[in-house]
């Protein structure tokens, strides 16, 4: 147990170091976020809150596909073999899931700031909405990380991730949109706790499925 924690920690550290040394990919995603939202601003101006909410989560979806897609595609098969000898598949997928969750949280918060700057600020409860955005970023990244692993095995690009992932992500996105409605209203809706618990439950389910199924993907 402690050993596998150590493995996960080392693999996470490796991903961070890679990200710091090859800064182009990190700044590439940041620029992707910024330019997408800027184009959206030019096209839509400052929409009303319902449209704002819908656009925000759709943009998160596209950012997630692009941010997560590279996490497996950048690993060559020789390097995968090397990881296989030093750590188990479960540690490897868990470190990737954690890393992508952190990356996606940073991207989600960045895009939230840009959205509030450019697209108007209809939020009544900005703090709660930020918390929802962090949770949402993690939820999206979990599902797409696992699908990126599948697409990488099939030697395919981000388009396949979108085809595989969009039908599966619908429950999370719908839940997130309903939960985030609280940020636009004065009164707290009923059933909020239940919906948040449901979202966390779906996340745990995704994590468990990824941990169980990834070892089968890994084998060659």
């Amino acid at each position: 147990m402690t050993q596998s924690l150590q493995h996960i920690f080392v693999l996470l550290k490796k991903d961070f170091l890679l990200e710091i040394r090859q800064q182009y990919s990190f700044y590439g995603i940041v620029l992707y976020v910024a330019s997408t939202i800027f184009v959206l601003y030019l096209a839509m101006g400052q929409p009303e809150e319902k449209v704002w909410n819908g656009l925000f989560w759709m943009i998160q979806l596209f950012i997630c596909v692009n941010a997560v897609a590279k996490s497996f595609l950048q690993e060559s098969s020789g390097r995968m073999l090397y990881y296989y000898t030093i750590a188990g598949p479960r540690d490897f997928i868990l470190s990737k899931l954690l890393f992508n969750a952190l990356l996606m949280t940073v991207m989600s918060v960045t895009s939230l700031l840009l959205f509030r700057l450019l697209m108007g600020d209809p939020l009544q409860h900005p703090l709660q909405f930020t918390a929802i955005v962090c949770l949402g970023g993690c939820s999206l990244s979990f599902v797409f990380t696992f699908l990126a692993a599948i697409a990488a095995r099939a030697r395919q690009n981000a388009a396949l991730i979108a085809i595989l992932g969009f039908p599966l992500i619908i429950p999370q996105v719908l839940l997130l949109m309903r939960i985030s409605n609280i940020a636009f209203a004065d009164v707290i809706q009923k059933g909020l706790l239940q919906m948040s618990a449901l979202l966390v439950g779906l996340d745990l389910l995704t994590l468990a499925l990824a941990a169980v199924l990834f070892p089968f993907l890994w084998k060659d």
């Binding site: 599902v143 696992f146 599948i150 095995r153 099939a154 595989l164 039908p167 599966l168 429950p171 779906l202 389910l205 995704t206 499925l209 990824a210 199924l213 089968f216 993907l217 084998k219 060659d220």
Partner: peptide, 19 residues
Amino acid sequence: KRARVSAVYNIFAYFIYVP
């Protein structure tokens, strides 16, 4: 590889779709 990867997706999708 096709059989293994698609089996993994099938299982993953089923357990997300049914809930």
